[in-house]
Design a protein around this nucleic acid. Structure first.
Length: 421
RNA sequence: GUGGGCGUAGCCAAGUGGUCUAAGGCGCCAGGUUGUGGCCCUGGAGAUCGAGGGUUCAAAUCCCUCCGCUCACCCCA
């Protein structure tokens, strides 16, 4: 084969489309009910955007971005993440002058150069949303509630919602010192990855899955024990609101997220199955992000949800989604004149919103009927010399196997009257 | 980047050194007497057996290299 879709990318074939449209419809409706508005940002950004926000030491910018220079030598990066571009747009368009928080949602492709595997791609798609401009924990609760409702309204069962707080610029440094102090004596017993984590991102020591590191993880300092008073209050109130909203969360002290910009609240939704690439929703608060982009200090919180992973779970749980395409009326024509007449009829039906297909003119009636049968439409229209002479068409009910003459002029109404399926 | 599994037509798949100028099934196209589908029957198109090299009188079948797919790690949605 000469060309294949690039590694880690996938074609969404017609039979897959119903899943995508289903998730989109549910998500859009949820956003509507919570007063969120859609935003679309470009598929690429100035390369510096992700370095500044996601963090220069994170894996995403270290080794996963698609970065290139365009013909004008501008360094660009394919969107590696959803939040930073939205925050950029917030700043660029002065959205701090809108009533806060500004509630935005998006669907977009995300590009990361990774080795693909189940549920992980080099181009994947996220539904995400952001509430920018207010630090109150009620906003956190609202965002988490939307994430939870999304999964529930899609029909997914057995999911778990984990939350944690990783503090802010005030209290986190102290916590990180505690972590390093705790781990320091054990350094030589840690796995290779954890030794680099110790240097670069001590928080990540907590979610190491190596068996040899587990004993140390268990006794490690807990982030929520080291929160400053403001973070502590935020954390407590968030939980109050979640309880009030009836959101079944669990606290996971080991939940940290890989992007540098997170502060305070972080959360994830996991499906029941075990396995690495499973997170279907991930998000958190990013109170320093806008400031890092050169704006006034502005809090924000949001989440991203992987469309492919949502759909994967819909299929695993055998959740039925509505069918998309309505089957067309096939107009079988015999002879040149009938074919010409058929084209007129097809145009009329299409104008009225009824999908219609005319098989290639060279085919026999038998072949056209076979084709019509395969299309699964309820009605097939047959048009030949005889019908032309009578000024009528034959309408065959493919399910019932019956057919009747219908005056050509009355066909549209005949079909419309029966199009309720 | 590291490790495991796998690569025969659009899909599923038999074949593990000669009888393979590669079985079968699905799907596709055509036909089954004059203008009618779904079942059935017949025929056809479609494969440089992932690619290249090697071993051998002989390779889809053995060896090497590469490529691709896939699963896992890392990380993340």
């Amino acid at each position: 084969m000469l060309h294949k879709a690039p590694r880690g990318t996938a074609d969404v074939l017609p039979e897959e489309q119903k899943y995508w449209r289903y998730v989109e419809r549910q998500a859009v409706d949820l956003c509507r009910r919570f007063g969120f508005q859609r935003i679309d940002t470009p598929m690429f950004e100035a390369a510096g955007l992700f370095v500044r926000t996601v963090g220069g030491e994170t894996d995403i910018v270290q080794k996963e971005t698609y970065t290139f220079e365009d013909r004008g030598r501008d360094p660009l990066t394919l969107r590696a993440e959803g939040t930073a571009p939205v925050c950029r747009a917030y700043l660029e368009h002065g959205m701090s002058n809108l009533p806060q928080p500004v509630r935005l949602y998006y669907f977009c492709p995300i590009f990361r150069y990774e080795r693909p595997q189940a549920g992980r791609y080099r181009q994947h798609h996220q539904f995400g949303l952001e509430a920018i401009g207010d630090a109150d924990p009620t906003v956190d609760a609202e965002i988490i509630q939307i994430a939870w409702l999304l999964t529930q309204e899609l029909g997914l069962k057995g999911l778990s919602l984990s939350i944690n707080s990783i503090g802010d610029a005030q209290c986190r440094p102290g916590y990180l010192r505690e972590m390093k102090a705790y781990y320091q004596p054990h350094l030589e017993h840690l796995c290779v990855d954890c030794r680099t984590r110790y240097e670069n991102n001590p928080l990540r020591l907590l979610d190491c899955k190596q068996a040899t590191c587990q004993p140390y993880v268990g006794g490690a300092p807990v982030a929520t024990d080291h929160l400053c008073s403001e973070c502590k209050e935020h954390w407590t109130r968030l939980q109050d609101y979640l309880k009030l909203a009836g959101i079944p969360y669990q606290i996971s002290h080991r939940l940290v997220r890989g992007l540098d910009y997170y502060t305070r609240t972080v959360f994830e939704i996991q499906p029941p199955e075990e396995g690495g690439q499973s997170t279907i929703v991930g998000g958190g608060r990013y109170d320093g992000l806008i400031e890092a982009l050169g704006g006034r200090p502005t809090p924000g919180i949001g989440f991203g949800s992987g469309m492919e992973r949502l759909i994967l779970n819909l299929k695993r749980q055998e959740i039925l989604v509505p069918e998309e395409a309505s089957a067309p009326v096939v107009i079988a024509c015999l002879g040149e004149e009938a074919h010409t007449q058929g084209l007129k009829i097809a145009a009329e039906l299409r104008k009225a919103g009824i999908p219609a297909i005319i098989p290639p003119a060279s085919r026999s009636l038998r072949s056209q009927m076979r084709y019509a049968s395969a299309m699964q439409g309820r009605f097939t229209v047959i048009l030949g010399e005889n019908e032309l002479a009578r000024g009528a068409v034959v309408v065959r009910d493919m399910g019932a196997g019956t057919q009747e003459d219908v005056p050509a002029a009355g066909l549209l109404n005949y079909l419309l009257a029966r199009s309720s399926r």
